[in-house]
Amino acid sequence: MRDAYHEQLDSVGHTLVEMAGLVGQALSRATRALLDADLPSAEAVISADDAVDALHRGLDVRTLDLIARQQPVAGDLRTLVASLRMSADLERMGDLARHIAKVARMRYPECAVPEDLRPTFARMGEIGAELADKVARIVEDQDVEAARMLERQDDVVDRLHRAVFNALLSKETAYTIEAAIDVTLLSRYYERFADHAVSVARRLVFLVTGGDE
Rank of each mutant, 00 (worst) to 15 (best):
R2K: 14
R2P: 13
D3L: 15
D3T: 10
H6E: 15
S11F: 03
S11V: 03
V12P: 00
G13S: 12
G13N: 15
H14A: 14
H14T: 14
T15Q: 15
T15K: 02
L16G: 01
V17E: 14
V17L: 03
A20N: 10
A20W: 12
V23F: 00
Q25N: 12
A26H: 01
L27W: 03
L27V: 09
S28M: 03
A30F: 02
D38C: 05
P40V: 06
S41L: 07
S41D: 13
E43M: 06
E43S: 00
A44V: 03
A44R: 11
A48E: 14
A48R: 11
D49M: 09
D50P: 01
A51R: 14
D53L: 02
A54V: 02
G58R: 13
L59Q: 14
V61Q: 11
L64V: 04
L66I: 13
L66K: 03
A68S: 13
R69P: 06
R69T: 14
Q71F: 01
P72S: 13
A74D: 08
A74Q: 08
G75T: 15
D76P: 07
V81R: 05
S83C: 06
S83W: 08
D89M: 05
E91G: 04
R92L: 07
M93F: 00
L96K: 02
L96Q: 11
R98A: 12
R98H: 00
R98E: 15
K102G: 08
A104W: 11
M106N: 04
R107V: 07
Y108D: 08
Y108S: 13
C111H: 06
A112C: 11
V113P: 07
P114F: 14
E115D: 12
D116S: 11
D116Y: 04
L117E: 02
R118C: 09
P119I: 10
R123H: 11
E126T: 02
I127T: 08
G128P: 07
G128C: 13
A129P: 10
L131P: 13
K134S: 08
D143E: 06
V144A: 08
A147T: 05
A147G: 03
A147R: 05
L150H: 09
L150N: 10
E151C: 01
Q153F: 07
D154R: 11
D154S: 04
D155H: 03
D158H: 04
D158K: 07
D158S: 08
R159Y: 03
R159A: 12
R162I: 02
A163E: 15
V164I: 13
A167F: 00
L168T: 04
L168I: 13
L169R: 12
L169Y: 11
L169W: 07
S170F: 05
E172Q: 14
E178H: 12
E178L: 13
A179G: 03
A179W: 00
V183R: 02
L185N: 06
S187W: 03
E191K: 11
D195V: 10
S199A: 15
S199V: 02
V200G: 00
V200F: 07
A201M: 06
A201W: 10
R203W: 12
L204W: 08
V205C: 00
F206A: 03
L207V: 00
V208K: 13
V208E: 11
T209Y: 01
